Simulated assay, not measured.
Amino acid sequence: MSELSRQPRILLVGPSVEVVRAAGAAGFGVWSLWDARRCPDARLAVVSERLLLADFADEAGLADATGAAAEAGLCVNPPGAVRLLADKEAVRRVGEVNGLVATGSSGAVGGARFRVDTLSVHGMHHTVGITVETPYGVLYPAPVTAGVAAALRSAVASLLDLAGYQYGPACTSVVLTARGPVTTGCRTVVAEEPVAGLVRVAAGRDVVGDAFGALAGRDVVPVRARGFAVAIAVGGLLGERVRELPYVREVVGGYAVVGAESVDLVVELAGFIRELAGSGVC
């Protein structure tokens, strides 16, 4: 991303057309970097100011592409920050330096698996949402105690600080064990589905639009859930069928999203959809 106060341009890696449009609506000119091994959506070149292609498996080629973006003033994070966060082994090492439990240590298997989405502005890491994987789907907000939520936020903020990440969205995977939080991976991308849909339903917020608005200089407004939402994987004709159910709020990205005021009720509603999926009815 370019310096916020002067040049409203941003580099997005592997973005969807919808994400590029959201960035454009916030006032950014978008350079999109796409993996040359995959065929991009034809609309991506239309909505992007520039479309760069690089083989994401070729470190030298990828470095050349990101270097061109840096020369154009699109990068404000320190060199290597995004690359470090994309390296799972490096994330593990950074966690060890910070005193966190190392990835793969005893006790990690079977722990609750969380995803913490954040938005960093001027080095301040704002939590967008904490979701948790459950047997019935992805649940937001994760129904954890204030102490557990604080531990998850602290682990993620420490990781981003040590990586030198100053600006932009990130989603960090964390496993909670008896020994503490285990950071298992991080992607510097804006919250995509199903997380974006969960936040829309439970908090009434557009996390993609909010992210680019904040990066364009607008105030960061805390996201506060008014209820709970769960995303259940559906596919094919089942997705079309559940769309008609009165308690399904959205069907997007291969997920049905239901919302309710309590965890118990949202779990019950998710169970109805899982029963349909298990019965093979479509």
Rank of each mutant, 00 (worst) to 15 (best):
D87S: 13
A90C: 07
F114R: 05
R21K: 13
R9K: 10
D87G: 08
G168L: 04
G209Y: 03
G168R: 00
V148C: 07
L119S: 01
Y136R: 14
A25W: 00
F228Q: 06
V257T: 07
V148T: 15
P40S: 11
A65M: 01
L215Q: 13
T66M: 12
R249L: 01
E240D: 14
P222W: 01
V257C: 01
E240L: 13
P194M: 11
M124N: 09
L160G: 15
G236V: 12
G235E: 15
T188R: 00
D206L: 00
S105W: 01
E192M: 11
D41Q: 07
L159H: 12
T118Y: 03
A150I: 03
F212K: 04
E71H: 11
D117T: 07
T134P: 00
V91Y: 09
P78S: 08
A81T: 08
A72I: 06
D35L: 07
D41K: 09
I232T: 03
L62W: 13
V199Q: 00
A157Q: 08
L265W: 09
V17L: 08
G164P: 11
A112M: 09
Y247K: 11
V156G: 10
L245P: 05
Y136V: 13
V208C: 10
A57W: 06
V132E: 05
A63R: 13
C39H: 13
L269Y: 15
D55W: 05
V201P: 01
G137M: 11
G67Y: 05
V267H: 12
V258P: 00
G24K: 00
N77S: 07
L276V: 05
L198F: 04
E275M: 08
L269V: 08
G213H: 05
L139I: 09
V148Q: 11
T127N: 14
S158K: 13
L33A: 12
V263P: 07
T134G: 01
S16D: 06
E193D: 14
Y140G: 02
L53V: 03
V201M: 07
V175I: 15
E240R: 11
L237S: 12
L4D: 10
A233R: 15
P15N: 06
D210R: 03
E240T: 12
V263Q: 00
S154G: 13
A155N: 09
G236S: 06
G204W: 05
T177G: 08
P40F: 13
C186A: 09
G14P: 00
A45L: 10
R224E: 08
R50H: 04
S262N: 03
V156E: 13
D161C: 14
L215W: 11
E261C: 10
G95L: 01
P246H: 02
A214R: 05
S2T: 12
R83N: 08
S173L: 14
L53I: 02
D35V: 06
G80R: 02
F28Q: 05
G197E: 06
V223D: 04
V174L: 12
A229S: 13
R200Y: 04
A69M: 06
R200D: 06
E89P: 03
P222M: 05
V156H: 12
H122G: 10
A36P: 07
V128T: 09
